[in-house]
Design a protein around this nucleic acid. Structure first.
Length: 749
DNA sequence: GTGCCTCGAGTTCC
DNA sequence: CTCGAGGCAC
C-alpha cells in the first residue's frame, strides 16, 4: 500500500488510488458522524485523513476528484477555513433611516398583499452589532456553523462555534434538519476585560466589540476562541420547507424552548406607530444594554405572508432594519485628491486629520463628485444649506452603513480666513487629457481612454479581479508593478499571456529579481496558463466596457453563445448603432430648439438628413434590434459595446487578447424541453417566482427571455397587473398563459 | 412622463 | 455600502 509513503514519494498512479480510498473513507466517516450518535473514527484520525487528502491534491491538482472530500463540509482542514454553501442564502436587510421609511415599509407591504382594514402585525427586535452565524442541526446534532460570507457561501467555523456557551451542541425535540441563524457578539464588559488582558500580554488590542468578536470567531485554533467570551442571540432559521411556527414571534419562542438565547427586547407590534414607539424605547435603553446594537429589525409576523412577499434581488420584502443615526465626528479636511477609475471617472477623496468614528480611525472619506463638494445634490438642489466644502475646513464625518466614511457637513464658523471654493479639475490629473462632464451626468470623466495610465491600470486590475480572470499571484499590487516594469511590462491584457515567453528571452528574468524566486515565478506562469481557458461571460465582463457589468455580460454570453458570433453581430449592427445615436442627438437638439422657433426648421432638416444619409442596411437594423431586444440590455449598453468594438485601438487590444484564449461557451441550454428555442416574455407581477428566478429557469431550459412582445415572441407569461404587453400579445396572436400554467409546463425539468 | 427595481461603478478599513 | 442611472412597467 502507498499510504505509508510520504506524499512526495507517490507515483501518479498511487496518488490516484489513494485519493479514491480517502474519498471513500472520509465519505463513510462523514455519513457515520452525521447520522449516528457515535462517529466511526476519532476527530484526530479524521483530520489526518483529510490533511493527507489535501496534501496529495496540492501535489497532483489534476487528480482532484469530482467528489473530493476537501469540498465536504463539517471538518477542519489545517490551513484556513473550509467553505460552506448556505442551503438558504443569508441575505442582508433593507434599511430605514427615519419614521417615513418605516411608514413606507408598512404601506408597501399592505399594497403588495392587498390588505384592506386587516391587521398587519410585525415582530421588532434589536439589531445586534456582531457577526451573523448559521448553525445547521441534523437529528438534533450541531453539524456545522458558517459565517455569512458573501451571503451564498460562508466560512466553516464549526469547531469555534462549538466553544460558545450560548450555542447548544444537542437539541431535543427539534425537526430532523434545522438551520438556526443568529448573531455572535461580545458584551461591553467582556470586551474591556479582554482588551486589558490582551494589553497585559502584549497581544492585539481590538478597536471595538464587533472586531473583537469577529477576530475571536475566526481563530484557526479553537482553544483560543474558547478563551474568548463570545455570546450568541438566535433570531431566525434557514429552512422554510419546515416552518418552525406560524408566526415569527412563535418561532422565536420555539427557539428559546430549544435552548437558544433570544433577545428579551423582541416584541410584537401592530403597525408603524407601534414599531416606532418600540424603536424609541430601545434607543433609550441602548447605553445600558451592555452590548452594541445598531438599530431595530422589523419582520412581518405571519409566515405565510412572508412567503408571499418573497425577496427582491438581495433583500427580503418582509423585513427591514431601522438604523440608529450614525455616529458623527469632526475633523480637519487637509486635502482633496482626485482618483481616476477604470471608466475615467474622476472621484474626489478627502484626506482627513485622523479621527475615530464608530470605533475605527478614519483618514480618508469619499466626497462623491463635483456637485457634492459645491453643496448640490444630483437634481441641483441644495444640500448642507448649500455650504460648499473647502480644503482646511472643519468637517463632520460619519460612516455610511457603518462602513464607508463620508463627509457630511461643514462648520463655517471654523473656516480659515482666505479660503477659496475648491476648483474641480477640468483635466485628468493623471494624463492631462480633458475631463468632461456630459449633460445631465453627475460625473466628470477623463477623455484619455486607453492613453491614460490610470485608466489602463484600473482596467487591468478589473481584468484580473476575482470575478473576472482571477489570476492567482497577479493582484492589484502586481498589476501596478508590472505596468511600469522596464523589462516585462503589462500594458494591456494580452501582455499577461505573453509574459512567460517574454520572460524566457529576457536578460532580467523574473526568477532572479528581488522578492521572486524560480518557484514563485513558475507559480505565476502556471496560474496564468490555467486561465487561458475562460468562460465567455467572464471574458466579456473582464473587458471592462462601460455599462457592461457582470449581469449584462452573462446575458450577452447566453444570447450569442460564442465570441465570434457576438463580434460579428455587433460589427454588423454598427451602422444602426450610429444611426440610433444620430437620431438621439437630433431629437435632443430638436427639443432644445423647440424654444428657439427660428432655427427649428434647420434642425429637422438635419435630423432627416442624418437618418436618410446614413442609409442603414437591413441586416444592421436587425442585428441592432436583436441586441437591444435582449431582456435587460438597452440602447445605452448597446452603444457602449458597439463603440468599444469599433474603436480601432481598443479592438486591436481585444483581438490580441482573444488570440491567446480558449473561450468556453455558456452551458448549452436544454434542447428537449417544451420551451427550448422559444422566445418567452414575462410581464405583470410574478407571485411564485422572482423575475430573476423565472428568467434563470427559462434560460436553463433553452428559452430566450425577451423584454418586449414582438412577432418573434412565442409565449407571454402574464401575471396579475399585466398591461400593455398582454394587449399587444393579444393583437399579435401570441400565446398568453398565467404563471401557474407556465410552472406546470416546465414542471419536473 | 413617472416611479420602481436592478445593475454598474464608485468608495474605506481590516 | 451607496449613489446614479439604465431598463422596464404602468
Amino acid at each position: 500500500m502507498s499510504e505509508n509513503l510520504g506524499v512526495s514519494e507517490l507515483s501518479e498512479e498511487q496518488a490516484r488510488a489513494e485519493l479514491a480510498r480517502l474519498a471513500a473513507e472520509l465519505g463513510r466517516a462523514n455519513t457515520a458522524y452525521h447520522t449516528q450518535d457515535a462517529p466511526e473514527i476519532s476527530d484526530a484520525a479524521y483530520d489526518n485523513l483529510k490533511r493527507r487528502n489535501a496534501e496529495i491534491e496540492a501535489l497532483f491538482p489534476g487528480l482532484k476528484r469530482a467528489d473530493s472530500p476537501s469540498d465536504l463540509v463539517g471538518a477542519s482542514v489545517a490551513d484556513g477555513f473550509g467553505k460552506i454553501t448556505h442551503a438558504v442564502p443569508m441575505l442582508s436587510l433593507g434599511n430605514a433611516f427615519d419614521d417615513t421609511d418605516v411608514q413606507d415599509f408598512s404601506d408597501r407591504i399592505r399594497k403588495y398583499l392587498g390588505l384592506g382594514k386587516e391587521a398587519l402585525v410585525f415582530s421588532a427586535e434589536p439589531k445586534i452589532d456582531g457577526l451573523s452565524l448559521s448553525l445547521r442541526y441534523e437529528q438534533g446534532q450541531l453539524i456545522h456553523a458558517a459565517t455569512r460570507g458573501d451571503g451564498a457561501t460562508g466560512e466553516n467555523v464549526t469547531d469555534n462555534a462549538r466553544t460558545i456557551g450560548d450555542i447548544p451542541q444537542v437539541l431535543t425535540g427539534a425537526p430532523d434538519v434545522l438551520e438556526v441563524r443568529g448573531e455572535v457578539y461580545m458584551s461591553h464588559a467582556d470586551f474591556e476585560a479582554l482588551n486589558e488582558r490582551q494589553q497585559a500580554e502584549g497581544g492585539k488590542v481590538f478597536a471595538n466589540p464587533r472586531n473583537a468578536a469577529a477576530g475571536s470567531l475566526r481563530q484557526l485554533d479553537p482553544s483560543i476562541t474558547k478563551s474568548r467570551p463570545l455570546r450568541f442571540f438566535a433570531y431566525a432559521w434557514g429552512d422554510l420547507s419546515a416552518p418552525l411556527a406560524e408566526t415569527q414571534m412563535d418561532a422565536i419562542r420555539r427557539l428559546a424552548q430549544l435552548g437558544f438565547v433570544t433577545n428579551p427586547l423582541t416584541q410584537e407590534c401592530d403597525g408603524p406607530e407601534s414599531l416606532i414607539a418600540h424603536y424609541r424605547s430601545i434607543e433609550e435603553q441602548r447605553a445600558t444594554l451592555g452590548y452594541d446594537i445598531d438599530g431595530v429589525v422589523y419582520k412581518v409576523n405571519r409566515q405565510d405572508w412572508q412567503g408571499r412577499l418573497g425577496f427582491r434581488a438581495t433583500t427580503p420584502r418582509w423585513a427591514i432594519a431601522h438604523k440608529f443615526p450614525a455616529e458623527l465626528a469632526w475633523t480637519r479636511l487637509e486635502a482633496i485628491d482626485i482618483q481616476v477609475g477604470r471608466t475615467g471617472a474622476l472621484s474626489p477623496v478627502a484626506r482627513l486629520a485622523p479621527v475615530t468614528v464608530g470605533g475605527v480611525v478614519v483618514s480618508n472619506a469619499t466626497l462623491h463628485n463635483e456637485d457634492y463638494i459645491r453643496g448640490l445634490d444630483s437634481r441641483g438642489e441644495k444640500i448642507r444649506d448649500g455650504k460648499d466644502i473647502r480644503i482646511g475646513d472643519w468637517v463632520q464625518v460619519y460612516r455610511a452603513g457603518d462602513v464607508i466614511p463620508k463627509v457630511a457637513d461643514v462648520d463655517l464658523t471654523k473656516r480659515p480666513d482666505g479660503s477659496a471654493p475648491y476648483i474641480f479639475p477640468a483635466t485628468c490629473p493623471e494624463c492631462g487629457s480633458a475631463a468632461v462632464r456630459e449633460e445631465g451626468d453627475a460625473i466628470r470623466r477623463c477623455t484619455g481612454g486607453i492613453i491614460c495610465p490610470a485608466q489602463a491600470v484600473e482596467k487591468l486590475k478589473h481584468f484580473v479581479a476575482r470575478k473576472t480572470f482571477d489570476i492567482e499571484g497577479l493582484g492589484a499590487k502586481q498589476i501596478e508593478m508590472f505596468h511600469d516594469d522596464a523589462d516585462l511590462p503589462i500594458r494591456q491584457p494580452a501582455d499577461i499571456f505573453t509574459l512567460r515567453d517574454r520572460d524566457a528571452s529576457n536578460l532580467n528574468r523574473l526568477k532572479n529579481r528581488h522578492g521572486w524566486g524560480a518557484q514563485s515565478a513558475d507559480n505565476l506562469f502556471a496560474a496564468i496558463e490555467e486561465k487561458r481557458t475562460i468562460a465567455l461571460a467572464k471574458l466579456i465582463f473582464a473587458l471592462g466596457i462601460r455599462h457592461v457589468g457582470e449581469v449584462g455580460a452573462r446575458d450577452l454570453a447566453l444570447h450569442y453563445l460564442d465570441w465570434t458570433a457576438l463580434t460579428q453581430a455587433i460589427d454588423a449592427a454598427r451602422p444602426a448603432a450610429l444611426a440610433h445615436r444620430t437620431a438621439d442627438q437630433a431629437e435632443e437638439a430638436e427639443r432644445i430648439k423647440a424654444k428657439a422657433e427660428a432655427r427649428r426648421a434647420r434642425v429637422s432638416d438635419c435630423r432627416a438628413a442624418a437618418i436618410a444619409g446614413l442609409d442603414v442596411p437591413e441586416t444592421a437594423s436587425q442585428c441592432w434590434s436583436d441586441l437591444i431586444g435582449i431582456d435587460g440590455i438597452g440602447a445605452t449598453l448597446g452603444m457602449s459595446l458597439s463603440d468599444a468594438l469599433a474603436n480601432p485601438v481598443e479592438r486591436a487590444a481585444i483581438d490580441a487578447l482573444i488570440a491567446h484564449l480558449n473561450i468556453v461557451p455558456p452551458d448549452a441550454p436544454a434542447q428537449d424541453s417544451p420551451v427550448a428555442g422559444k422566445t418567452v416574455v414575462f410581464t405583470g407581477t410574478l407571485e411564485k417566482l422572482t423575475r430573476a428566478e423565472a428568467k434563470a429557469r427559462a434560460e436553463a431550459l433553452g428559452a430566450k427571455v425577451s423584454g418586449s412582445v414582438s412577432g418573434k415572441t412565442d409565449i407571454l407569461v402574464a401575471g396579475p397587473g399585466a398591461g400593455s404587453k398582454a394587449k399587444k400579445a393579444a393583437d399579435l396572436g401570441v400565446k398568453t398563459i398565467d404563471e401557474d400554467t407556465w410552472l406546470a409546463l416546465i414542471e419536473g425539468l
